[in-house]
């Protein structure tokens, strides 16, 4: 290197010769000739496939963004895409999380109107053995407007408000009648709160009254409420992975209270967190632990359009009841607004 440097210093003349030789003016005829070549090139460019594609705007947005943008846009795009991937991954991880029981309850409570069909199959025996072929009894319950209720049980239609029965009408005799035990039970069960609560449906009072508690039991050992253990049993109940993506199942084991056991299973939708089906079953044993009664309640919830206030109004219903021109079939769902204008008695 040192030698090279020295040579370079010594040979400034040589360097000047190089400089002069390579910085000469371009001859005019040659420049004109090359300009002509450039002009021809310019003309030919019109036929270039890339230019044609540009003219037809054939470049997709992605390519336009990536290739036609400035260099600083590319890292920005990459960072944005990375961020989007992270957000999607977080959303997928958190979004797939099954809803908790509290979330299901909260969602149910927020519904302004609920239509319920309850199928009660009381496998009950005055004597033994049990009859598992017993036909279920259908009870229809509509609730809305701050826990106003309308219940149809057999021939009877009952109106209630916040746990208070307002009127019960017999559709055959077209007059007021006594409330049956199931309706009374349901009105009490739905509670007196302003909202419809899932817990109030499931909650059962301990059938053991303090009088029945043996004296030798420590005081306070039995509470009046059943104990409750909630477990997410989705994988056990729904083995199909596709179905379990849509549904979540909760099992409630209320345990023993005296000679009774109570269990409940709730199916809820994963995304909307709304319960759609509940099964409650009770086992009633005699003192020898023989099953004497086993009522099973299957409750199906639908969340159709909100019904008009008249639907829950006993006075409006009573007025229609007096009109002999209105058939019994019409009275059953009087003031009910069918979704889609259909007249079938469906929720």
């Amino acid at each position: 290197m040192n030698t090279e440097k020295k040579d370079h210093i010594k040979n400034n003349g040589a360097w000047k010769a190089v400089h002069e030789d390579l910085s000469t003016e371009v001859s005019e005829p040659l420049e004109k000739q090359l300009q002509k070549t450039l002009h021809a090139f310019r003309q030919d460019m019109r036929e270039h496939p890339y230019v044609r594609r540009l003219e037809r705007h054939e470049f997709p947005l992605k390519r336009r963004l990536i290739f036609f943008s400035r260099s600083w846009v590319r890292p920005l795009l990459a960072a944005g895409m990375g961020l989007a991937i992270v957000v999607i991954a977080v959303f997928l991880i958190l979004g797939n999380k099954p809803p908790t029981w509290a979330q299901v309850q909260e969602r149910f409570r927020s519904m302004p109107f609920v239509a319920t069909k309850i199928y009660i199959r009381d496998i009950k025996l005055d004597g033994y053995p049990l009859n598992p072929l017993a036909e279920p009894k259908l009870v229809e319950v509509w609730a809305g407007y701050g826990n106003r209720m309308r219940i149809r049980s057999g021939n009877a239609v009952t109106f209630a408000d916040k746990g208070q029965i307002l009127s019960t009408f017999d559709l055959i005799t077209r007059s007021e009648t006594d409330t049956d035990s199931v309706t009374y039970f349901l009105v009490n069960k739905f509670g007196k709160s302003d909202t419809i609560s899932l817990d109030s449906i499931l909650m059962v009072k301990n059938p053991l009254s303090p009088d029945h508690i043996p004296e030798w039991f420590p005081k306070g050992f039995f509470s009046r409420e059943w104990s409750s253990k909630r477990v997410d049993t989705t994988p056990l109940v729904i083995s199909d992975p596709v179905a379990s993506k849509e549904l979540v199942v909760f099992d409630h084991d209320f345990g023993y209270a005296g000679l009774k056991t109570l269990k409940a299973r709730i199916w809820a939708l994963r995304d909307s967190r709304l319960p759609i089906r509940v099964i409650v079953w009770l086992r009633d044993y005699d003192s020898d632990w023989r099953l004497i009664r086993s009522p099973v309640w299957e409750i199906v919830f639908t969340y159709s359009k909100k019904q008009p206030k008249e639907f829950f109004d006993p006075q409006a219903f009573a007025a229609k009841l007096k009109d002999p021109a209105i058939s019994m079939q019409s009275l059953v769902y009087m003031f009910y607004e069918y979704p889609g204008g259909d007249s079938l008695p469906i929720n």
């Binding site: 090279e4 370079h8 010594k10 040979n11 400034n12 003349g13 000047k16 010769a17 400089h19």
Partner: peptide, 27 residues
């Protein structure tokens, strides 16, 4: 600078070093 030094050396070998303008140092 490396290219220039090498070029000058090569040119001197070829006998192109007859210019004597020592002030030529703009590079």
């Amino acid at each position: 600078s490396k290219g220039k030094a090498r070029l000058v050396k090569l040119l001197s070998e070829l006998g192109i070093s007859s210019y004597k303008e020592e002030t030529y140092s703009e590079y």
